[in-house]
């Protein structure tokens, strides 16, 4: 009886300590806990990805859904991006009488920065929210638990396949978006000028170098990985019922978009350092 009383007192005192804790300190604690569980989640991915059995069929299915199904959206965005960038850049270059530099300037902008970043943002919006909402609804309806009970590894089946697909499909989408953007730029150049298709692409490749292409493509692998990792993490750890589904989808997109800019900043610094 005395022991019960002691335990009761201890629980009450802990509750009082927690409620009287500084809210900023609590937020900081939550933040570090989130970082820690995200790191463990990422490490689990690297552990599961190399361990058989491999879910190849699911990987192809996810690649189709994540990559191929995103292509129309990415293509339209890419075309408009190239067109608008060219139209907006023309007046400034015209002031210096340097309109002939338009294809080269637009190409460098698209290949180095705008193509990868805008495509990744579109991808985060479409795929990130999709993965976040899908996994979160599976979690709150206990489908993930059911998979575990039936002997399927849900992490391997749901998370590994999606992260791998996104990591591989985003660079493929970026290459396609770059090509379509350049075509958009060609249309933009010809709205007020007269440059042949051949001359346009000669001028584009005249100013491009491997240092423009490779770092831009390499960083898209990291974009794809982070978008899928954060979306899967948010979806896989969703709670609070149906409300949690919306929250997971929302925070997946926000975090994925933010991570794109952070990775981009690091990539630019590293590129400048080594090339």
């Amino acid at each position: 009886m005395v022991v019960d009383e002691k335990i009761k007192n201890k629980i009450v005192s802990e509750e009082i300590t927690e409620s009287s804790e500084n809210p900023y300190l609590k937020k900081l604690k939550d933040f570090f806990e989130e970082i820690s569980s995200l790191t463990l989640f990422a490490l689990r991915f690297f552990k599961e990805v190399v361990r058989p059995p491999y879910e190849f069929k699911e990987f192809v299915k996810q690649s189709y859904l994540i990559g191929y199904k995103s292509f129309p959206l990415v293509a339209i965005t890419g075309l408009i991006m190239g067109l608008v960038l060219t139209i907006q850049s023309r007046p400034t270059l015209a002031q210096f009488g340097a309109e002939s530099w338009l294809p080269a300037m637009v190409a460098v902008s698209i290949i180095r920065e705008i193509g990868p970043v805008i495509t990744a943002l579109i991808f985060a919006g479409k795929v990130g929210s999709g993965i976040g909402a899908e996994l979160a609804s599976m979690k709150v309806t206990e489908q993930i638990d059911a998979m575990e009970v039936s002997g399927t590894n849900p992490f391997k089946y749901l998370v590994v396949t999606r992260i791998l697909s996104a990591t591989i499909m985003l660079p493929v989408l970026v290459v396609a978006a770059d090509a379509i953007s350049l075509y958009g730029a060609y249309i933009g150049v010809n709205l007020e000028g007269d440059v042949s298709f051949h001359l346009f692409f000669l001028q584009v490749f005249e100013k491009l170098s491997f240092a423009d292409v490779f770092p831009a493509i390499i960083k898209t692998f990291f974009f794809g990985f982070m978008i899928a990792l954060l979306s899967c993490y948010k979806g896989f750890n969703a709670n609070k019922g149906t409300e949690g589904v919306g929250q997971a989808a929302n925070s997946a997109v926000v975090l994925a978009s933010l991570s794109i800019f952070i990775i981009d900043m690091i990539a630019v610094q590293l590129t400048n350092l080594f090339i």
Binding site: V172, V175, A176, D178, A179, F201, F205, L208, F210, V213
Partner: peptide, 14 residues
């Protein structure tokens, strides 16, 4: 198609 586009781009730059 995407890989072909990439290779063609690399060829022109190279």
């Amino acid at each position: 198609i995407s890989i072909t586009l990439f290779i063609v781009g690399i060829y022109f730059i190279g």
